[in-house]
């Protein structure tokens, strides 16, 4: 199994398309950083709006490395599923397309093993991608913009809120958020692999994954109560942004944020459970289908 995993990782590492993901992340992050270095004030003004009529806020301090990372992740984590699909969607179908799947499957390896190894390889790719993101979006931003307290601009129900998290209460939240993102993106990897089992070219599952994610995301953002109540809980995309839960700091009765607290750990935990259930279901179906499949490619 370990040797098979090595093979898979080796194949991923040797494929040029793998590096598209890393280059794309680097490019997006750098564009953000340059843009905010040049004119982050405008963005702050937009977010703070008329709060500035009442309060004196040092916008230079507000645009710091922690804040930058949040802003970047906010955008990036919507796009990263595409990058994960790029690798995971290719896992089975890419081999089918190249004519190597049949060669692999007539080796003394069980199909379940092949699929699990493909999944694990995609998972590891996802983790490395996230580490790269953490390096670019968090550590590089911390270097460029320094660190300070962090402002979270949030829409909660009908209310908009600004949360402030003190600088010494942030890093663990990022670690937790990246771990959550790892689980969320693994759902995408599992979905891509499932779709990959059905296809014999790699474009199909990649496009299908992206379409499903986009479609679900649009539906879960329609913001109509009927959909919010009846449809949204059933769409896994609703839970992809759950990493933000780690930045929704808990408050006391006076509305003062409590250091080290979370507003709603229950809901984060539930989301995690739902995501993990999705991984198991997607992977389970993928294994069953793959085992029964006649390899005609």
């Amino acid at each position: 199994m370990w040797s098979l995993l090595q093979i898979e990782l080796y194949k991923i590492s040797r494929r040029p398309r793998t590096y598209i993901a890393f280059a794309a992340i680097a490019a997006i992050v750098l564009i953000f950083q340059v843009a905010f270095k040049a004119d982050g004030q405008s963005y702050m003004n937009l977010m703070l709006q008329n709060v500035q009529d009442n309060f004196e806020i040092d916008r230079n301090k507000a645009i710091n490395g922690y804040f930058m990372c949040y802003i970047i992740l906010n955008t990036l984590l919507v796009q990263v599923p595409i990058l994960v699909a790029l690798v995971a969607g290719d896992a089975i179908s890419g081999e089918a397309n190249m004519g190597t799947l049949r060669l692999m499957l007539c080796k003394p390896i069980s199909r379940t093993q092949v699929l699990m190894v493909k999944f694990l390889a995609s998972f590891i790719f996802t983790i490395i991608l996230l580490l790269w993101m953490a390096f670019m979006a968090l550590f590089l931003s911390m270097l460029i913009f320094g660190t300070n307290d962090m402002l979270i601009f949030r829409v909660k129900g009908d209310e908009s809120q600004i949360l402030q998290i003190t600088a010494d209460d942030i890093l663990w939240r990022y670690i937790a958020a990246f771990l959550y993102a790892a689980v969320a993106l693994t759902v995408i990897a599992a979905l891509s692999i499932l779709l990959s089992v059905f296809a014999e070219n790699s474009i199909g599952p990649i496009v299908a994954t992206v379409c499903i994610v986009i479609f679900f995301t649009i539906v879960s953002n329609i913001n109509v109560p009927v959909i919010d109540r009846n449809v949204k809980p059933w769409l896994f995309t609703s839970y992809l942004v759950g990493w933000k839960g780690f930045f929704y700091i808990g408050t006391n009765a006076d509305g003062q944020p409590l250091k080290g607290s979370l507003e709603n750990w229950e809901s984060i935990r539930n989301s995690l459970n739902i995501l993990i259930a999705h991984i198991i279901v997607f992977l389970g179906i993928a294994i069953v289908v793959f085992k029964r499949k006649d390899i005609l490619s």
């Binding site: 194949k11 040797r14 494929r15 397309n97 190249m98 004519g99 190597t100 049949r102 060669l103 007539c106």
Partner: peptide, 10 residues
């Protein structure tokens, strides 16, 4: 089996 394409990038 048939024409194998193999891993072209390797």
């Amino acid at each position: 089996i048939e024409r194998p394409d193999l891993y072209k990038y390797l």
